[in-house]
Amino acid sequence: MSDLSKVPQFNRLFRLQFEPAQDSFVLLFPEGMVKLNPSAGAILEQVDGDSSVAGIINKLQSKFPEAGDLTPDVCDFLITAEEKKWIYYA
């Protein structure tokens, strides 16, 4: 992803929520549910329709400073999330 100023938004068919029974974030959609790993949950938790990709990366870098440069991992995940139609860019 070359444009870090893009702002991801959730597809209206998907809703992110923390599921205590699963002890993880999940994406709910009409046909079911996707259980997310901790990294995916942390990234999607930052998708608010206002924060750019750069802003999301900055928030995650502050939250996980020991992780090093998160830019490639976050960008790769957001590409996958867009391919799966979980998010889009307005």
Rank of each mutant, 00 (worst) to 15 (best):
K6S: 11
K6I: 07
V7E: 00
V7P: 02
P8R: 03
P8S: 05
P8L: 02
Q9C: 13
N11S: 13
R12D: 15
R12E: 14
L13S: 15
L13Q: 15
L13A: 14
L13D: 13
F14A: 02
F14T: 04
L16P: 00
Q17V: 11
F18M: 09
F18S: 08
F18I: 09
E19I: 09
P20D: 13
A21Y: 02
A21H: 11
A21T: 12
D23Q: 15
D23C: 07
D23W: 06
S24W: 03
S24L: 06
S24I: 03
S24G: 13
S24V: 05
F25H: 12
L27R: 02
L28A: 03
P30W: 01
E31T: 12
E31F: 08
E31G: 08
G32L: 03
G32K: 00
G32T: 05
V34T: 10
K35R: 14
K35E: 12
L36S: 06
N37T: 12
P38A: 10
P38C: 05
P38V: 10
S39L: 14
A40W: 02
A40Q: 14
A40H: 08
G41R: 04
A42K: 07
A42H: 12
I43K: 04
I43H: 00
L44I: 12
Q46H: 14
Q46F: 07
Q46N: 14
V47S: 02
D48A: 12
D48W: 06
G49N: 02
G49S: 11
D50C: 10
D50I: 08
S51N: 09
S52P: 04
S52D: 06
V53T: 01
A54M: 11
A54F: 06
A54S: 14
G55M: 00
G55D: 12
N58Y: 10
N58R: 14
N58Q: 15
N58F: 09
K59C: 05
Q61M: 13
S62Q: 15
S62V: 03
S62I: 06
K63P: 01
K63D: 09
F64E: 07
